[in-house]
């Protein structure tokens, strides 16, 4: 059995919630979310709030990436920051030491993410999920400690002077331009992950999550598909890493501690595993809330923790849980009758 959630009946099951969810179709919701993200700088465009917003957008990308692994496929990954680190370091090293533009590093980062996904996933995805969680936890630490000790990654002081984003001769390094570029890229990443989730492959991931044996009996090579989920997660994390380097212009091993992996996982669980709107909401919540709580000064993380506990008590399924619901056209009753009587 993969990492299964205990299903408690929640308000998400009520007819009212179902109607609400249908009204707010995912597509319409996506446009609303994009509009909010695009309009946010008009409310406050200070460098500080732009940096908070950019971080939130990146966090959304990480959360939808991890959601492929944890939410769709049910594989508990406690070292997701490793892929994020691989993306940031590969592109950072290529951009600083070899002077590549960030765009040019994308194919290399993709290859590195896929490779890392295969290396870590290959041997471990044969294990049942508790073991996988431990091994991924170790993998996350290995990547961080390796970066801490290699010369090419700059050791403990990391890499600095990573250039800003430049796409097709367009300089996007100013905070506002970079924010909008990130929003567009993240929006594509969110749509992409959601589309994968609704495809043949995404369904297979959910079948594995629900019942691995039954999925296998339906001809689904569960090992290959779990590896595919893991690689997809790695790609999303790696690409987010490039943007992270571009935003901060400096990265160090301290940027990729276990806390990151935990916070991304928190965003997924808090939002609602497997649910795109939920995970986006969870990511924004987890990344922006500590900033909003700055007034609480030293009590900031205490209040944050209490709020998380409160949310999980009242919404154990997450803020916006995923739920199985499809519109089915009204069926002509005579069709069924005819079939039932056919001998």
């Amino acid at each position: 059995m993969t990492w299964n959630r205990k299903k408690a009946p929640t308000s998400a099951d009520t007819p009212r919630a179902r109607v609400l969810n249908r009204l707010l179709g995912e597509r319409r919701l996506g446009w609303i979310g994009l509009a909010v993200a695009l309009l946010a700088p008009f409310v406050d465009a200070s460098n500080y709030s732009l940096s908070v917003l950019t971080s939130a957008a990146l966090f959304v990308m990480l959360a939808v990436g991890l959601n492929i692994v944890v939410g769709y496929c049910g594989l508990l990954d406690l070292g997701y920051a490793a892929f994020f680190a691989i993306g940031a370091y590969v592109s950072g090293v290529l951009a600083t030491t070899y002077g590549w533009s960030l765009l040019a590093t994308v194919p290399v980062v993709l290859a590195a993410a896929v490779l890392a996904g295969v290396i870590i996933g290959g041997p471990t995805l044969r294990l049942r999920s508790d073991y996988l969680a431990i091994v991924t936890l170790g993998f996350g630490e290995i990547i961080r400690i390796t970066a801490n000790n290699l010369d090419i990654t700059g050791g403990p002081s990391g890499i600095y002077g990573i250039p800003g984003l430049e796409l097709f001769g367009l300089d996007l390094s100013s905070p506002v331009a970079f924010y909008y570029a990130v929003v567009v890229i993240v929006a594509l990443a969110v749509v992409g992950a959601a589309r994968l989730g609704r495809s043949r492959m995404g369904r297979a991931w959910r079948f594995i999550r629900e019942d691995e044996d039954a999925a296998e009996a339906m001809g689904i090579h569960t090992y290959k598909l779990k590896l595919a989920a893991y690689i997809a997660g790695a790609v999303w994390g790696g690409l987010a890493g490039i943007l992270f380097g571009a935003q901060l212009s400096a990265i160090s091993p301290q940027s990729f501690t276990f806390l990151w992996s935990a916070l991304i996982l928190l965003a997924v669980v808090l939002g609602g595993m497997g649910s795109t709107p939920g995970v986006v909401l969870g990511a924004v919540f987890v990344s922006v809330l500590p900033e909003l709580l700055r007034d609480a000064a030293d009590y900031r993380f205490f209040v944050f923790g209490v709020l998380l506990i409160v949310v999980m008590i009242f919404r154990p399924q997450g803020l916006w849980p995923s739920q199985a619901s499809e519109r089915t056209p009204a069926r002509r009753p005579e069709v069924q009758k005819e079939d039932a009587w056919q001998a």
């Binding site: 299903k7 994968l196 495809s199 043949r200 492959m201 369904r203 297979a204 959910r206 079948f207 629900e210 019942d211 039954a214 999925a215 339906m218 001809g219 689904i220 595919a228 997809a232 199985a324 619901s325 499809e326 089915t328």
Partner: peptide, 23 residues
Amino acid sequence: LFGELTVLDNVRAGMHMRMKQNA
């Protein structure tokens, strides 16, 4: 059954091998 998934999705599982689409 895949209890949390729709009835239609459950049946689609059987078609996994025959569906012609990639990522």
